[in-house]
């Protein structure tokens, strides 16, 4: 449980971080360290150089701008959970952050680190996909924005190129009247979701006018359950609709299987959790 030798830098500006990252092929960015450090302790990961972003003040902020909430990559889960702005303007994200790991993890782990690590069972993506969030990727040669759906390529694999740093997550402000819920059943050792569901539901006069549903922990990457969404919109908000829609939770998804939960169980769990999350959201009005 002792990592291999590595160099350590703690730059105070993003440009310095990018320069360091570009100058060392063995370098790896360190955010909250909640995934990378354990891997290093097992020596499964042996980066030659860690570039710690913790001392860059510009990466830890929450701000409202142009109809979206911008969240700096180094904002901790606890800050996301407790931010008054996020709670008011993007409530699903704050609700989801409260479910991540435990208090210690939420105090150290960061939204940027989590999104970049792209664990297929991480909580954030379920909320961020349902909220159609975007991420900002910066390199020495420029910057680009990417939707989270395209950013998450596969398990532990993202669009991030060598020399790039994810600096911000942009979440559109919640629409008026939209109800939200996050629900998860976790594996008790790791706290990772065996099926986590983020739901946004718009209901007008008893009819569902808007639906976003995303799942994590079920497939090899978190995904939007568009078949569920389609089965909801235009229907009356109620138990029958929710149950019928939830049956599509894993349409086209090759469910994961591990010693904690078989694919069969995950498929069942996904449908149950989607239905219950929809009921939670509808009941939160």
């Amino acid at each position: 449980m002792i990592p291999a030798r590595f160099e350590y830098s703690a730059p105070e500006t993003l440009s310095e971080a990018l320069r360091l990252l570009g100058s060392d092929g063995e370098a790896k960015v360190l955010a909250g360290g909640q995934s990378l450090v354990p891997m290093m302790k097992f020596r499964l990961a042996q980066p030659g150089h860690l570039i710690d972003l913790a001392r860059i003040p510009d990466l830890n902020f929450v701000a409202e701008e142009n109809g979206a909430i911008r969240i700096g990559a180094m904002t901790t889960h606890n800050q996301v959970e407790t931010s008054a702005l996020i709670r008011e303007k993007c409530p699903l994200l704050a609700k989801t952050a409260a479910h991540i790991g435990d208090v210690q993890v939420r105090n150290r782990g960061t939204i940027g680190g989590s999104v970049v690590h792209a664990d297929p069972a991480a909580d954030y993506p379920a909320a961020l996909l349902a909220m159609e969030a975007k991420v900002k990727l910066v390199s020495a040669s420029g910057e680009r924005m990417a939707g989270l759906d395209e950013f998450l390529v596969d398990a532990l694999t993202t669009l991030l190129e060598e020399g790039e740093i994810l600096t911000e997550v942009h979440v559109p402000l919640e629409r008026a009247g939209v109800l939200t819920a996050y629900r998860t059943l976790v594996q008790p050792a790791s706290g990772f979701a065996m099926a986590g569901v983020g739901v946004r539901l718009g209901v007008e006069n008893g009819t569902i006018t808007f639906a976003r549903v995303a799942l994590t922990g079920v497939g090899s990457k978190p995904y939007r359950a568009t078949a569920v969404e389609q089965a909801l919109v235009g229907q009356g908000a109620g138990a029958e609709t929710f149950a019928a829609a939830a049956a599509h939770a894993t349409d086209g998804v090759d469910a994961l299987s591990d010693m904690h939960a078989s694919a069969e169980y995950r498929v069942n769990l996904a449908a149950v959790q989607v239905r219950r999350a929809l009921e939670d959201a509808a009941g939160s009005a």
Partner: peptide, 17 residues
């Protein structure tokens, strides 16, 4: 070895990938 005892959670998704 190490990957068996610490990597189980990621085994299925990794091999599929």
């Amino acid at each position: 070895g190490m990957i068996a005892s610490v990597g189980q959670r990621l085994m299925d998704m990794t091999s599929k990938m």
